[in-house]
Amino acid sequence: MYALEYRYVVTGASVTAISAVFIAFSIFTGNNVVLGVSLSTLVLGVVLLTLGLTYVEPVSELMRYYVGDLDIFVTRILEDMGIASNYRFKVCFNEGKVFAVFTNGGIKCGDISLGVGIIGDSAYVAIPLTNVVSRIDKLLEVSRPELIDYVREVLVSTYGICRDVRVWRESNLITVELILMSREAKQLMKTPINPPRMTTLLALARYFNSSVEIVEEDIVGDNYVLKVRIVGG
């Protein structure tokens, strides 16, 4: 499945069009040098156009299929635990352990361990985020940036999930708006794992060194708005 790289499509189409004009001009005026140069640039334009129209990141293509298979597995686990239609999602950040947690109750992060479990009347599924958090950790190694700069660095510069972000904070409630989600990110949102949501919560959890949970999420056009609460512990 091709993803289209619009920059190359636009550049290729422009170069091809300009080359075609110069080819017509050179045929009309009988200038062979201009014809030759125009033919060279025509080759370049056509190659760029083809590159843009058939562009796909090879590893992300593999990962997309892998995530798709993982989602089927996670969905089945959630169904078996009876929380597929009524789970709350949070990221637990506790004593060096980081989990993405699906639960139908108010289980404390300190009580959660990797895998599936039941505490009281509440069931949970905890997925580790060790590798993802180590990647994000590198962004906080040197200095502690502003929250919005940090979120932008993770979601826009590093992972290209969206074009920009807006962040509001009211005490322990943080609202993050992911502006103009990429097409790939929008596809990934349709799954329980939902990597854009998971990455946003993980970034916030890492920034505040605290567990966070989703309060509300909404899709407005191409924007994704997440309201997150810092829960601590």
Partner: peptide
Amino acid sequence: GESRPDVYLSMAI
């Protein structure tokens, strides 16, 4: 001073 258009095209290819 090359004036043969096919040379330019061949080189590009």
